[in-house]
Amino acid sequence: MKHIISCIAVLALLFTSCTGPQGPPGFDGFDGINGEDGGLIVASAFEIEVNFNADNNFEFVESYGFEVFPSDVTLVYIEWETDEGEPIWRLLTQTEYFNDGVLVYNFDFTQQNVRFFLDGTVDFNTLDNVWTQNQAFRVVVIPADDVDGLDTSNFDVVMDASTVKSFDIR
């Protein structure tokens, strides 16, 4: 019995004292702006009210007013309705169907600005003002790394995941 315990102890010491070859080194972390070490990544945002009409070709372009990096992602939400005075935000694009066609609220963005525009088959000139005037949008610019796996259709989820605490109202 003593020999079995001694053999087990020797084998345990032998296995725990062995080391294998060192693995490859890990990747370096992302550098911050101008090669400085990275820090807290902050999302930027603003809220804007837009009027769509024939004079502006049913579109509106707004400059960000802050630096946007090539890897950043712009998300735009429209105030679709309210519930007991609380706004309900929907991620663009949003489509509304009419008897005479389709209205689509859409956007595109560059590193310099975001463009809101109406699209679809309906005659925009015949739309009631409720569809074209005083349309409230929230624009959130977030680093692309923060979007992975995020339910961007839910405005509250995006707000919780980012560091945006308030909006610049324009």
Score class of each variant (00 low, 15 high):
residue 3 H to T: 12
residue 4 I to A: 14
residue 7 C to R: 15
residue 8 I to G: 02
residue 9 A to W: 00
residue 11 L to W: 13
residue 11 L to P: 02
residue 13 L to Y: 05
residue 13 L to P: 05
residue 14 L to N: 01
residue 15 F to D: 01
residue 19 T to K: 06
residue 23 G to K: 14
residue 24 P to F: 06
residue 32 G to T: 14
residue 33 I to M: 13
residue 34 N to K: 07
residue 35 G to M: 04
residue 37 D to H: 03
residue 42 V to S: 11
residue 44 S to H: 15
residue 47 E to K: 14
residue 50 V to L: 05
residue 52 F to G: 05
residue 55 D to R: 08
residue 58 F to M: 06
residue 58 F to T: 02
residue 59 E to Q: 14
residue 62 E to T: 03
residue 62 E to N: 05
residue 63 S to T: 10
residue 63 S to D: 14
residue 63 S to H: 12
residue 64 Y to F: 09
residue 66 F to D: 10
residue 66 F to Y: 13
residue 69 F to L: 09
residue 70 P to K: 00
residue 72 D to S: 09
residue 74 T to C: 15
residue 79 E to I: 05
residue 80 W to E: 10
residue 81 E to K: 10
residue 82 T to S: 11
residue 85 G to I: 07
residue 87 P to V: 02
residue 89 W to E: 01
residue 89 W to S: 08
residue 95 T to W: 10
residue 97 Y to C: 00
residue 97 Y to Q: 15
residue 99 N to P: 06
residue 105 Y to K: 06
residue 111 Q to W: 12
residue 114 V to H: 06
residue 122 V to F: 03
residue 123 D to Q: 08
residue 125 N to D: 12
residue 127 L to V: 12
residue 128 D to M: 03
residue 128 D to H: 13
residue 128 D to F: 01
residue 129 N to C: 01
residue 129 N to K: 07
residue 132 T to E: 01
residue 133 Q to P: 05
residue 134 N to S: 15
residue 135 Q to A: 01
residue 137 F to N: 09
residue 142 I to P: 05
residue 145 D to G: 08
residue 152 T to G: 02
residue 152 T to S: 11
residue 153 S to R: 15
residue 154 N to A: 06
residue 157 V to I: 10
residue 161 A to F: 03
residue 162 S to F: 11
residue 162 S to I: 02
residue 162 S to L: 03
residue 166 S to M: 11
residue 167 F to V: 03
residue 168 D to P: 00
residue 169 I to F: 07
residue 170 R to L: 13
